[in-house]
Write a protein that binds this DNA or RNA. Structure first.
Lengths: 236, 236
DNA sequence: ATTACTAAGAAACGAGTAG
DNA sequence: TCTACTCGTTTCTTAGTAA
């Protein structure tokens, strides 16, 4: 039905991914051997090998197969998948729903494509209905700092507002998710904003696209290079 | 190889167990329908039904099938299984190994069987070698309060000292795990103690059996009914 | 509406093997 | 050693059905 590799993996694959993370694959490539993985998974090394391949094609990890093993590291998407599990367990044992993710980054000029996309009536209508406002025709782009790039995976554990995809005669426009957020700079806070995260594409993981009913650059007095704090919040 | 139902379940089953826990099955029976579970698992309701059966026969949950659904609740063992996963995720995302579980309960007279078992040379030798002391010939039994009974499942996420089973001509003696602990009462603390948890048996989940090189009742001035605090710690 | 069988079909597994 | 292929076999899944 779809041509691209899907990011749906089963729980067995997730267990393998968890193993990689426990070995340190979150911060950089770690050397993994299939037989070692197999031991932890209580399966054959063939199965372990397959698990890593599946995770790779699901986009959850990057692999570099060398002569005597393979170097493996988690991708953003892999980290997000694990974080969703983590959020579940936190809810079970602590009763707390993760409610805020705090990110920092510098304001930057986007390519201007954000402006184009959000202006499309197919999206705009949903913004009005589901976010309760009509966004200013442009997105605020924020380049996340290194720490925030990693913390970003926690966003997918939050509840967001789904934006549906659609297609016209010429092309299809993918679905996305909006997460309520606040943007703060120098004591001034914009409360009614959302970050918008395209669902499918390998969009730039280091950037945040923010929409709001007002022009945030003016509202908060932002320029390229300004460091802002973005707090992403769960809805409801 | 073994006659009894084993508590080894796959990750698909664990996902179903997690769902039950999220629905509230940790504190008491919740009503689950297979089709509802199937939706979350992205599988058929038949598969969902099977998952619950497997979890039951693994001892991870109790079920009460009624006309229009089933009431399901987690067992100690099921909760422990989930907690082990939780511990993994905590290590991944917080970098912290859970190191202490604090339990409270009242001192009680055991049946005296603990005294008998730990005196057996097959166990006693391992205590000497692996715990570094020869336990006083008797166990201190502690009846956990309600909250601690539930917190107890966290113990299995800690690292413990394995005690092997063995058999002689007449019968077999099962393996167990010792967890380092401290026992505190009225400001006095016994540092060198271990709780001992038999592996297989459905031992009383509400009781703790504690061994130590000294007679704890004398050392700390304990009597039946005394409320003590037991801190179970990870080894190393 | 449930849960849970059975049986056909699909998917996953692991031994063997190659690179 | 390592990874990853093929392929026979086992296991798991699901549709249909019963209770």
């Amino acid at each position: 039905m779809s041509e691209s590799a899907v990011s749906a993996v089963g729980y067995d694959e997730l267990a393998a991914l968890k193993f990689v993370a426990l070995e340190g694959g979150r911060s950089g490539p770690v050397k993994i051997s299939c037989s070692g993985l197999a031991g932890h998974l209580e399966a054959s090394s063939q199965t372990a090998s397959r698990r890593l391949q599946q995770l790779e094609s699901a986009g959850h990890l990057d692999r570099d197969v060398v002569a005597d093993g393979q170097w493996v590291s988690l991708t953003e998407s892999g980290e997000a998948a694990l974080h969703r599990e983590y959020a579940h367990y936190r809810r079970i044992f602590e009763g707390t729903d993760p409610s805020t993710v705090e990110l920092e980054g510098t304001v930057t000029s986007g390519m201007g494509e954000g402006r184009h996309y959000i202006s499309l009536s197919g999206y705009m209508q949903q913004f009005r209905e589901r976010l309760g406002y009509e966004p200013f025709a442009g997105t605020l782009n924020v380049d996340l700092d290194e720490e925030s790039v990693r913390a970003r995976s926690a966003v997918s554990s939050l509840s967001g507002v789904p934006i549906d995809g659609w297609e016209d005669d010429e092309r299809t426009f993918g679905p996305a998710t909006c997460y309520a957020a606040t943007v703060e700079y120098d004591g001034a806070v914009a409360e009614e904003t959302h970050i918008i995260v395209p669902e499918r594409t390998h969009h730039d993981e280091t950037q945040l696209e923010i929409i709001a009913p007002v022009k945030l650059r003016e509202e908060l007095g932002l320029d390229d290079g300004t460091v802002v704090t973005v707090r992403v919040e769960a809805v409801e």
